[in-house]
């Protein structure tokens, strides 16, 4: 299957992972009580695709309005998988869109990529 999708729920964001376009979109709020069942399939699919295809370019668009503390590790695992691809030659861009008034979400983008030298972060305040 070329596109993996997860529909947005009250506590988890929409996910669209297009293998053909080498794009990942995560859009919404993320505060499941147990983040593992939510993150495991997307992390697995992403890793399998990046390792087998080694694309030259990969873009991740993350538009998160709210993330609970337990889910930050899941997001970090995604960034870590992207970083591994980056170290194998993929040019990885992470577009982190946040509410301009929300310092915590703005900082989270920076905190997540810290220590990962092979992804490029673009922070974008969401236009009102």
């Amino acid at each position: 299957m070329q596109i993996l999708r997860a529909t947005r729920t009250a506590v988890t964001p929409e996910i669209v992972f297009s293998r053909a376009e080498n794009k990942l979109l995560i859009d919404g709020e993320c505060y499941p009580e147990n983040p593992l069942p939510f993150f495991t399939p997307i992390v697995g699919a992403l890793k399998a695709h990046l390792e087998s295809h080694r694309p030259s370019q990969f873009d991740a668009h993350m538009r998160l309005q709210y993330v609970n503390s337990a889910s930050t590790k899941g997001l970090q695992t995604i960034i870590s998988v992207l970083n591994d691809a980056g170290s194998q030659g993929t040019n990885v861009n992470v577009y982190w869109t946040h509410d301009p008034e929300d310092d915590a979400m703005e900082e989270l983008g920076q905190d997540l990529v810290e220590d990962f030298a092979n992804v490029l972060l673009f922070r974008q305040p969401l236009a009102a």
Partner: peptide, 14 residues
């Protein structure tokens, strides 16, 4: 305010 809304919500969820 915007930031207080997010903080209240986050504190409740945690």
């Amino acid at each position: 305010s915007g930031p207080a809304k997010r903080k209240l919500f986050s504190t409740f969820v945690e």
